[in-house]
Structure formats: C-alpha cells, structure tokens
Computed example of a mutant assay.
Amino acid sequence: MQEPKPSFSLRKIALAAFGPSLLFGVGEGAMYPVLALSARDLGASAAWAGFIVALVGIGSLLANLPAAALAARFGERSAMVGASVFSLLGLAFCLLAHEPWLFGIGVLMIGMASAVFMLARQTYLVEAVPLTMRARAMSTLGGAMRIGLFFGPFIAAAFIHALGLDGAYWAAALAILGAGLLSLAIPDLPGDRKQRASSRHVAMSGMMRRHARVLITLGLASALVSALRACRQIVIPLWADHIGLDATTTALIYGFMGGVDMLLFYPAGKVMDVRGRLWVALPSMLIMSTSLMLIPLTHGFATLMAVSMILGLGNGIGSGIIMTIGADASPNEGRTQFLGIWRVISDLGGGGGPLLLSAITAALSLAAGILAIGGLGYVAAYMFWRWLPRRVTA
C-alpha cells in the first residue's frame, strides 16, 4: 500500500480544494428545505413538487460528462466560475417564476451547475492525495458540502422570516456568488490540467466495457445511496408540511439534521482509511433505511426532529463513500472519464429516487413512497456486503 508523503497535509490544499464546494453547499442548503414548498405555492401537487425537486439530481446527471469536457478544455477555475453564473441565472428563474414549469427550469439549472463543482474537485484529489488518506480527502470534500448544508438552512430561516419563501433564494444567491468569486481568485491546482489532458482521448465506450462489472455492481449500489440521499431532501419538508409544520420550523429541522451529518465526515473518512470502506458503507445504509421507514410514524416537531437526526447520523457516517469507492475503482488512464461515468450512474439514483417517490406518492400515498425508498437502502447494504472489497491496495 502506498505510504503518505511526510510533508503532505490536507490543510495545504484546503482553500482551493474545498472552499468553492463549501460555499456552493451553503447555497444549496439554503434552498433545499423550501424547494418543494415553493412548488406547492405555485400550484404544484405533492407529486409534482417531488418531481420538481428531482430536477436537481436530473440536472446533475445531464451535466456530468459535459462538466468533465468543459473543465478539460477551459480549466477547472473557468468551469467553476461559469457554473456559478449559470446557477445564479437558475436562481433568477426560481425567484421570477409564476408557474411550476418555469420554477422547474431554474431548479434544473442549479442541479447542472452543482455537477461541475464536485467533479472538478474530485478528479484533482484522486491525484493529489496519497491512497492511505484518500477516504479522508473525499469525506472532507463531502463534508465541505455538508457544512454548507448545515449553515444554509439556518441562514435561510432568517431570510425567510424577513422576506418570505423568496428569502431562501436570495440567501442562496449570495452564497453562490461567493463561490464564484472564490473560484475566480484561486489558481488551478498544480498538475490538474496536465492529468486531465493526458486522458482526454480515452474512448468513453471502451471505458465502460473494460469496467462493466464494477459499474454494474458497486456503481448501482452507489446509485441507490444517491437515491436515499436525494429523497431525504424531499421527504423532510413534504412530511413536515403533511403534519402541519411551517416553513421556518421545517428549515430548523433540516438544519439540525445537517448538524449531525456535518460532525461525522472526518471520523468516517479515517475509519474507511484504517478499517476499510465496508465499515462505513454498511452501517450508513442500515441506519438511513431504518430512519426513513420511521418517518411516517412521526406526528409532530419533536418526533420528526428525532428521526431526522438519526437520518443525519446515517448520512454523516457515509460522507464521501460514493466518491471514495469511485476513486478506488478508477484507472490511472482515463480517470476523468471514468469518474464522469461514475457520477452519471450515481446521479441516476439521485434523479431516479425522487421520481420513484413522486410516482408512488401519486399512486398510493406519501407514506408509501417513503417506505419504498427506505427499502432501497437495505438492497444497497446487501450489494456493498457482497461486492465491496474489504481492503484497498494501490
């Protein structure tokens, strides 16, 4: 196993590697708790509100491969600045929308922009960080987003109190503007463009054929993880609305859930580095699935808060797991393309999970949809137990 360089420290690359993702996470955290509620206010049914929120994942799915191409051609910094501008345009659509479909366009644009931030940073970290610290680096990248998701709802709650639901989108705009300005100020990290250029001509179809087994097994399991994560962002506000909680209270519940989530990312990464990936993947899925299945039993602020914090615990210990497993499986040649494909598969879960939730909610009930999504986590737990390597070697 490759040993870390004595002089290596995540702190040396923290601002450039994690700063833009942190601020973008604040923006997403500010608006996630109210996306479904805004759609409802515009006349969308509960099922259509779920579909509109699913457009975040769909947008990310559509943008993963173009994001890799843009970053390779124009450089990572330019790609992230462009994504910030694009996301701000999406927020303008959300603020000006008078119909659900126009609001959905804005949500889709924001999802597309988010793909650029995560893919750009993940590719670099795989190359820059020693294998024995890889999970900590990936979990810290995920943790930067989680820190943003933690603070975002609290900021949103203050803006909502002053400006109504639109306040959440103004808070998001300020954070994403900051992410764009920071991206503009920092240089591309050394060697990043060179690495992408060396794999630019690797054929995507050949990559998929050579790595079909890992993409079908661990890739599909990662897609199920994404489905649970995406649905939790919809389930909490919709169920809170269902039991009569207001938008400010919903944002606070979401924020406390993010707080538990945020605190665990680095310990989770260290466990993965020292004990192996399965020690985190398996408990994460079991806890998330069980807590989702408990949500339909909640009936007020206290019970929903308690279950949401357990859900945050399960998600927090799984911080960075999808990116880490993808990085472990990625080849040296064509790494950017492989990670783009990996993100497409995982984002199929991020977009497909909410679509499944929306469909079951329309056909049966919101509670039935939540239970179905919770069941997917048990499937993912089995797949990780079956196919995830116990140890990773260089």
Rank of each mutant, 00 (worst) to 15 (best):
T250I: 09
T250L: 08
T250H: 07
T250F: 06
A251G: 12
A251Q: 11
L252I: 15
L252D: 08
I253H: 02
I253N: 01
Y254E: 01
Y254F: 15
G259L: 14
V260Y: 02
M262G: 00
M262P: 01
M262S: 12
M262V: 11
L263H: 04
L264Q: 07
L264D: 06
L264S: 07
F265E: 03
F265K: 01
F265Y: 14
F265N: 01
Y266Q: 03
Y266M: 09
P267N: 07
P267L: 09
A268V: 06
G269A: 10
G269V: 10
K270V: 10
K270W: 13
V271Q: 01
V271W: 06
M272Q: 14
D273V: 08
D273T: 08
D273W: 08
V274G: 03
R275W: 14
G276W: 01
G276C: 03
R277Q: 14
V280R: 05
V280C: 10
V280P: 10
V280D: 07
L282M: 08
P283V: 05
P283C: 04
S284D: 04
S284E: 05
M285C: 13
M285A: 02
M285H: 00
L286Q: 04
I287M: 01
I287W: 05
M288Q: 12
S289N: 07
T290E: 00
M293C: 15
M293D: 09
M293Y: 06
L294S: 10
P296T: 05
L297M: 13
L297E: 15
T298V: 08
T298G: 04
T298F: 09
T298S: 15
A302S: 12
A302C: 01
L304V: 10
L304R: 00
M305Y: 06
A306P: 01
V307K: 01
V307A: 09
M309I: 10
M309F: 09
I310N: 00
I310R: 00
L311G: 02
L311F: 08
G312D: 03
G312K: 04
G312Y: 08
L313P: 03
L313C: 03
G314V: 05
G314F: 05
N315H: 09
N315M: 12
N315R: 00
G316K: 08
G318F: 06
S319I: 10
S319E: 12
I322D: 15
M323Y: 12
G326W: 05
A327Q: 13
A327D: 13
A327Y: 13
A329R: 10
A329I: 05
S330H: 11
S330K: 03
P331Q: 10
P331D: 11
P331M: 08
P331K: 09
N332T: 14
E333D: 14
E333Q: 14
R335Q: 15
R335N: 14
R335M: 15
T336V: 15
F338K: 00
L339N: 12
G340I: 04
G340C: 05
I341G: 04
